[in-house]
Simulated assay, not measured.
Amino acid sequence: MLDGREVDQAELLDVAKDEDRARSLLRALRTLSTGPDPKLREMARGVLRGDLTAEQAFTDPEYTAALFSGADKVRRAGELRSEAEAREAGERFGEWQQARRTEDEREDQGTPPSDTTPRTTPGQQPAAPWRHSGPGEVGGPGTLGVSRPTGPFGHG
């Protein structure tokens, strides 16, 4: 961050409600703070610096619109992929989840990453399973490993 200060997990508990969700929210904010969407970068950086609370960010109409727009793009990409692509993404997601759990356990114990843990530079998130791995592959978080389920809002 510009002044070196960054909120910690405890400061996100009012919105996240528990430690695991707060950790996940902090990771998401870090990812958004370097992402391609300028409105989401602005929002995430403001929360990370402490200039804006997470509750303020998630209730601001402009930031909410940007979040929903991104989620809609992911949903549409998931709808366009084949059953084989969905299965492959589900397998990669399971592997990614296991690696993430291992990383979280190491962080909780204060153990440095092992030689088998993917290396990342400061501020860079580990590669997620929905990253494009080949030509024509479409996918995204929130739609991994399933083929077009009907969601709570009737999408699908």
Results as ranks from 00 to 15, higher is better:
3 D>H: 07
93 F>G: 00
62 E>F: 00
104 D>Q: 15
29 L>V: 05
40 L>V: 07
11 E>T: 08
46 G>K: 01
91 E>P: 00
44 A>F: 01
98 Q>P: 00
60 D>L: 03
128 A>V: 13
10 A>S: 13
60 D>N: 11
31 T>A: 15
73 K>A: 13
75 R>A: 14
89 A>L: 15
44 A>S: 08
44 A>L: 01
53 T>K: 01
59 T>D: 05
95 E>Q: 13
126 P>R: 11
117 T>K: 05
149 P>V: 07
85 E>T: 14
148 R>Y: 02
17 K>I: 10
36 P>S: 15
32 L>T: 00
100 R>G: 02
60 D>P: 01
125 Q>F: 06
26 L>T: 05
108 D>M: 11
123 G>P: 11
107 E>I: 13
35 G>A: 10
117 T>A: 13
2 L>I: 12
100 R>T: 15
18 D>H: 14
15 V>E: 09
26 L>A: 08
118 P>Q: 09
40 L>G: 03
41 R>K: 12
130 W>D: 11
72 D>H: 10
117 T>D: 15
40 L>R: 03
154 G>L: 06
30 R>V: 06
138 V>K: 08
108 D>F: 04
44 A>D: 02
140 G>D: 07
51 D>L: 03
85 E>L: 11
109 Q>I: 00
105 E>S: 12
74 V>W: 04
67 L>R: 05
76 R>P: 00
12 L>K: 01
46 G>Q: 02
132 H>C: 11
53 T>G: 06
4 G>T: 12
3 D>K: 10
155 H>S: 08
129 P>Y: 03
137 E>K: 10
30 R>P: 06
55 E>H: 03
88 E>L: 13
124 Q>E: 15
73 K>P: 00
5 R>T: 13
53 T>M: 02
75 R>M: 07
41 R>A: 09
54 A>D: 01
53 T>A: 04
37 D>Q: 06
78 G>K: 01
145 G>L: 02
52 L>K: 07
54 A>L: 03
12 L>P: 03
26 L>H: 08
3 D>A: 14
151 G>D: 15
26 L>P: 02
130 W>S: 12
58 F>K: 01
121 T>S: 12
74 V>T: 10
42 E>Q: 10
56 Q>M: 06
102 T>S: 12
27 R>A: 15
117 T>I: 05
5 R>E: 08
75 R>V: 12
45 R>I: 09
3 D>C: 08
118 P>F: 06
78 G>T: 04
77 A>K: 10
134 G>I: 06
6 E>P: 00
15 V>N: 03
133 S>H: 15
65 A>L: 10
28 A>F: 03
81 R>L: 07
133 S>T: 15
19 E>W: 04
19 E>A: 15
120 T>N: 07
140 G>P: 06
99 A>G: 11
89 A>V: 07
21 R>E: 14
143 T>Q: 08
55 E>L: 05
12 L>A: 04
62 E>W: 00
92 R>V: 08
67 L>A: 03
56 Q>E: 14
104 D>R: 14
61 P>F: 06
